Simulated scan of single mutants.
Amino acid sequence: MIKQVITLFLLTFTLVSYACSCKNYIGMADHISNSEIILSGTVTSAQNCQLETEDNKNIKNVQSYRFTILNAFKGINGKSIDIITGRGFGDCGDHFTIGKEYLIFAYDNGYTKKNDGLYETSICNWNGLVIEKEGVYRNVNKNEI
Rank of each mutant, 00 (worst) to 15 (best):
K114I: 08
Y119H: 10
T121C: 07
V16L: 14
T14D: 11
F73M: 13
L70R: 15
G75R: 04
V136F: 06
V130W: 02
I26A: 04
T12D: 03
G128F: 05
G75E: 02
N56M: 11
R87P: 01
D55Q: 14
G135E: 02
G128T: 02
L118A: 09
E54T: 02
N58T: 04
M1E: 13
G41Y: 01
K57T: 11
L118E: 09
E120K: 02
K79Q: 04
I81E: 02
N115R: 14
D108C: 04
F73P: 01
Q47Y: 02
T121V: 08
I84W: 03
Y102F: 01
N141Q: 05
N125Y: 04
N141M: 06
N77S: 12
N24S: 14
D30T: 14
I37A: 03
T85R: 03
N24D: 11
Y65C: 04
I98H: 05
I123D: 05
T7A: 07
T112S: 15
I81M: 05
V5A: 09
K114Q: 13
K57W: 01
I38W: 14
N58F: 15
N125D: 02
K142G: 00
Q47L: 05
I98N: 08
L103F: 01
S17T: 07
N71F: 04
N56W: 09
N109G: 12
I6V: 10
S21M: 15
D82L: 06
T44H: 09
N24P: 05
E101S: 00
D116K: 00
Y111S: 08
Y119D: 10
C22M: 10
F96Q: 08
D94Q: 15
I2Y: 12
C124I: 11
N24I: 11
I2E: 02
N24T: 13
I123R: 04
E54P: 10
T85H: 09
K133F: 08
I76N: 14
Y65P: 05
N143E: 13
T97N: 12
Y119A: 08
I145Y: 15
N56F: 15
K100C: 10
Q50K: 10
D55S: 13
S40E: 06
L129H: 13
I84D: 03
V5F: 11
S17H: 01
L39D: 06
K60I: 14
F13S: 07
N56C: 06
G27T: 02
Y18M: 12
D82G: 00
S122H: 02
N48T: 07
S35K: 02
S17V: 10
E36F: 07
L39N: 12
N24M: 14
N109Q: 06
L39F: 11
G93N: 13
N109K: 13
I69Y: 03
N109S: 15
I26W: 06
L70G: 15
T12R: 12
E134K: 09
L103E: 03
T42L: 00
R66E: 04
L118S: 10
N77R: 14
F13N: 10
S40W: 01
I26E: 06
G27P: 04
K60W: 15
I123F: 00
I2R: 09
L51W: 03
I6H: 02
T68Q: 12
N115C: 09
Q50R: 12
T85E: 06
I6W: 01
I2K: 11
I81T: 15
